[in-house]
């Protein structure tokens, strides 16, 4: 099997760059939302297809047989409007992507960049203003044949300023499956770069995606139930405790995920403290096993250092299960 693969031609990045320049993906936009009743339409007002414009980078995705490639779904957002993170907060709905892919190609989960916090007199929400890039990994199976195929993506979003609209768009694009790469290939061989603009944009947004805490960071994440945890209890009061090195940052906050059965304090992100180069965040949680909707109970979210979109942020996830000695659970 391996021998068969090594005999196939390697991906030819240079040739693909040239191809990308000659071929342009077919782009179609479908506006699906309309203005609200009672809001007079005027020539100055933009519809939701203009309030957020979706584009795909690269427009021609090169994937080796059995390999993968990153795709960036970019939304250019009208000033003062915003779309929502995977946990929208007090209100809102996350951006949703639906892929229609040829057999043998699959799409991974959205990698969400670190969101901004929006505060209004009514609510606190999480999302993105101006521009957001959502990264998705496309994978090709080992059995797929080489060649070009067409694919499409449907994006749906709720976009708000003082009022909210539902928008969406469709894009079609091309996937070029190339021969498998050699086992000893470098990363740049594995992911053929077909478009330098796409490469730069993907790198820029990848840098904003919260990562799993690296081993050497020794980030501690645990949930404690001072009064114990009972799966048959209506409600268990607990604390999610996070601590780790703060580097040069003096600010730290936790942004919760939407986790069925586990709720976090109202009023937005939970601020932590930094002392002697270490951060600590204590997040009071309430766990109602009956509200888990069949999912495994967990406390999850991201812990963010500093204030900039590009400052470090780490994925947090602590499963909540039967109590261990000491009444706490840790990963």
């Amino acid at each position: 099997m391996r021998e068969t693969r090594t005999m196939r031609p390697r991906a030819a990045p240079n040739r693909l760059i040239a191809a990308a320049g000659l071929l342009t993906a077919t782009m179609t936009t479908v506006a699906t939302a309309q203005l609200l009743p009672g809001v007079p339409a005027s020539p100055r007002e933009k519809g939701p297809d203009e309030l957020a414009r979706m584009s795909l980078l690269p427009e021609r995705v090169g994937i080796p047989v059995g390999g993968s490639a990153w795709v960036l779904v970019r939304l250019a957002i009208e000033p003062k409007w915003h779309v929502y993170w995977r946990n929208p907060g007090d209100s809102g709905v996350p951006v949703e992507l639906k892929w229609t892919l040829p057999a043998g190609i699959s799409a991974g989960e959205i990698r969400w960049p670190r969101p901004e916090v929006f505060r209004t007199p009514y609510e606190i929400t999480y999302g993105y203003a101006d521009e957001v890039g959502l990264l998705v990994e496309l994978k090709a199976s080992e059995e797929i044949g080489t060649g070009a195929r067409s694919a499409s993506i449907r994006g749906d979003w709720m976009i708000c300023k003082e009022m909210c609209l539902i928008g969406g768009a469709d894009r079609t694009f091309e996937i070029e499956v190339s021969g498998a790469v050699e086992a000893d290939a470098t990363d740049s061989d594995r992911v053929p770069i077909t478009d330098s603009e796409a490469f730069a944009a993907i790198a820029r947004w990848q840098a904003q995606v919260p990562v799993a805490p690296p081993e050497k960071m020794k980030l501690r994440q645990m949930v404690e139930f001072p009064n114990g945890f009972r799966a048959d209890a209506n409600e268990n009061a607990g604390v999610l405790r996070l601590s780790g090195p703060a580097g040069r940052f003096s600010e730290v906050r936790f942004l919760p995920d939407a986790t069925p059965g586990t709720t976090y304090p109202e009023g937005g992100p939970v601020e932590g403290r930094v002392a002697s180069g270490r951060f600590e965040v204590e997040v009071p949680i309430s766990v109602r096993p009956g509200d888990a909707l069949g999912e495994a109970l967990r406390a999850a979210g991201i812990v963010c250092l500093g204030n900039a979109r590009t400052d470090p942020a780490f994925e947090i996830e602590v499963p909540i299960g039967p109590p261990t000695a000491g009444g706490s659970t840790a990963p």
Binding site: G92, C160, C164, G290
Partner: peptide, 17 residues
Amino acid sequence: PSTASTRPYGCGVKYKR
């Protein structure tokens, strides 16, 4: 009811300020 509490989706209620 087996499901007693879920996370609602929608627009924030624009209460009187």
